[in-house]
């Protein structure tokens, strides 16, 4: 379990310039096996929260506790936290360290000092799980952006984290590739009990997550199931977020007299099912 207790974080130099903190009095809890979508406008504090959870930056006030270990405790616990919390960034080119697929997957396990046979086992496992086997001997520079992002996820998963944070990994890849990547990650999360925190600004990606957290100006604005969050249309709009198109369509149909439709429709399949059930 990850606990974020009343955390405030400000980047250095921002106080002198009168800029508000990146995060202000944020409190939340992430349970094991949960899949969460974290959504917010640019500058709402999503990526800062991700870095705090992965112990890349430390809170100035409050605490972040990962499986009982405080991120600001220092020493060996910092590295235990970084092993437990895997972080995938937006641009794979910024995080791929080596220049071959196999070496990239092995980089994390090598840092953990694992024996060679175990590194080999994890590399083989990740090649299959992330469909990277055909590119095993390829240079990283020869991969497409989607394949690079899959490789970035494989490199992080090879460290067997308990929590996986995806910081807008779908921004730089085409729609269907992004969908496939998210589906793979959710499947792995289900099978292995990994908690997933997916940071995004695409509202249509929320539907398949257990929980949605909306951030605005460094604070948690809404926290609940996708359906419960999407009921707060006005608050979402004030935070610069529009409802997904399919939800808007459902609401327009309701406004035109189809009042039996549910208030929040999350997916096209939901809409089809709702329309078919009408008499």
């Amino acid at each position: 379990m990850i606990e974020v207790n009343n955390v405030t974080f400000r980047y250095s130099g921002e106080a002198e310039e009168g800029i508000a903190p990146a995060l202000e009095e944020v409190t939340l809890r992430i349970d094991e096996g949960e899949t969460i979508a974290l959504i917010g406008h640019n500058g709402s504090g999503k990526s800062t929260l991700a870095r705090l959870l992965a112990a890349i930056v430390l809170p100035q006030r409050g605490s972040v506790i990962v499986d009982g270990l405080r991120t600001d405790a220092g020493g060996e616990s910092l590295w235990q936290i970084r092993q437990s919390v895997g972080l995938v960034f937006q641009n794979p080119d910024d995080q791929l360290v080596t220049n071959t697929v196999i070496d990239e997957i092995a980089f994390g396990p090598e840092n953990l000092g694992l024996p060679r046979f175990e590194i080999e086992e994890r590399v083989e496992e990740m090649l299959d799980l992330l469909d990277l086997r055909p590119y095993a001997r390829h240079a990283v520079s020869d991969l497409s952006q989607g394949q690079k992002q899959r490789l970035a996820v494989a490199g992080v998963l090879a460290m067997r984290p308990r929590y996986l944070i995806l910081d807008e990994p779908t921004t730089m890849i085409p729609g269907h590739t992004a969908e496939q990547l998210l589906e793979t990650v959710r499947r792995l999360a289900r099978e292995r009990g990994i908690s997933v925190l997916h940071i995004t600004h695409h509202m249509y990606e929320l539907a398949d997550f257990d929980r949605v957290i909306v951030m605005n100006r460094g604070r948690v604005l809404l926290d609940g199931t996708p359906a419960s969050v999407l009921r707060h249309r006005e608050e979402l709009e004030r935070a610069g977020l529009g409802l997904p198109l399919i939800t808007q369509l459902g609401q327009r149909l309701r406004a035109r007299g189809w009042s039996q439709l549910p208030e929040v429709i999350l997916t096209l399949d939901d809409l089809k099912a709702a329309l078919c059930s009408l008499k």
Binding site: R82, N91, D94, Q95, V97, P109, N111, L114, R116, G155
Partner: peptide
């Protein structure tokens, strides 16, 4: 910016150069 991001990503993957007692293992001997 890239250098900063890469060093962050490496640290996030437990790359701890300069830490006493840290020893990396190798996939290729």
């Amino acid at each position: 910016q890239r250098v900063e991001m890469l060093s962050t990503a490496m640290e996030a993957r437990c790359y701890r150069a300069g830490y006493r007692g840290w020893r990396r293992s190798k996939l290729h001997a």
